[in-house]
Design a protein around this nucleic acid. Structure first.
Lengths: 130, 130
DNA sequence: TTAGTTGCAAAAGGTTTGCCGTTTT
DNA sequence: AAAACGGCAAACCTTTTGCAACTAA
């Protein structure tokens, strides 16, 4: 990516504004407000570019499509609300996970995903904000 | 599923014998030894049946295709070797993960995945057994 | 001008489904 | 014979790619 196109800006802006990991189609929906004829292919191409630039990272939950969020400096994990299906960042991390592995296995990395109900959905158990 | 067919048996046996989560195409490869003309569609249909029967469970790692393993009674997590890509069961689990969530969020469940190098690959850093 | 980008449509890759012939009871 | 099951191919869904037209620098 060498040019700053309207599409690129709109896609980046959408991710910045969301402040949580978004699905490709959510990025399209949000960025379409600024660029009406925006295509999914362009969204994917720019997401790829943004990743290569280190501006965003991919968040993949088991069995779900990839989500994209602003790159963060710190190691962190995620929480998914089972009601609205939105994903949120977590800051804490319980170290010493190495001891969960059997003898002879070397742990290099880990991933933790919590599932439950977010604060909004706890307050309003009816509505869905997916 | 009401009948015990050769295909059903071969698929179930493959999963039992593996003792670790298998990809659909791995199940096909293994069960094909017993049923030569076995098709992937049949594998998927029987995997679905086995799940409905509660005989097997699905293990999904972020960004990867689903794997299938014998249903286990106990809550457990998984370890994936980055060299051979095989997935192994872990028995331990570090509770008190609830406190990782922000105030107002309710944690109902969690998932932990460790990545690293399995014992076989530590012993033999060259060969891949994927 | 002109190389990089976009939109559209088609392709890919894994999983699911429709159809119809085959098997089991 | 009736009901269930398997194989094959097409359908699906999300992501990727080919290509001609467009556009930013």
């Amino acid at each position: 990516m060498e040019r700053k196109t309207r599409q690129y800006q709109a896609i980046y802006d959408a991710i910045v504004a969301a402040r949580r990991p978004l699905l490709a189609r959510e990025v399209l929906a949000l960025a379409s407000a600024a660029v009406p004829r925006l295509s999914l292919a362009t969204v994917y191409r720019n997401l790829k570019t943004l990743q290569d630039e280190g501006a965003i990272t991919t968040v993949v939950l088991p069995g779900q499509n990839p989500r994209y969020e602003l790159a963060r400096r710190a190691h962190h994990h995620h929480f998914q609300c089972r009601q609205c299906e939105r994903v949120f960042d977590l800051d804490a991390c319980p170290d010493h996970l190495d001891r969960l592995a059997p003898p002879g296995f070397v742990v290099e990395d880990h991933e933790i995903i919590l599932y439950g109900k977010c604060d909004s959905c706890c307050a309003d158990p009816v509505q869905s904000r997916a």
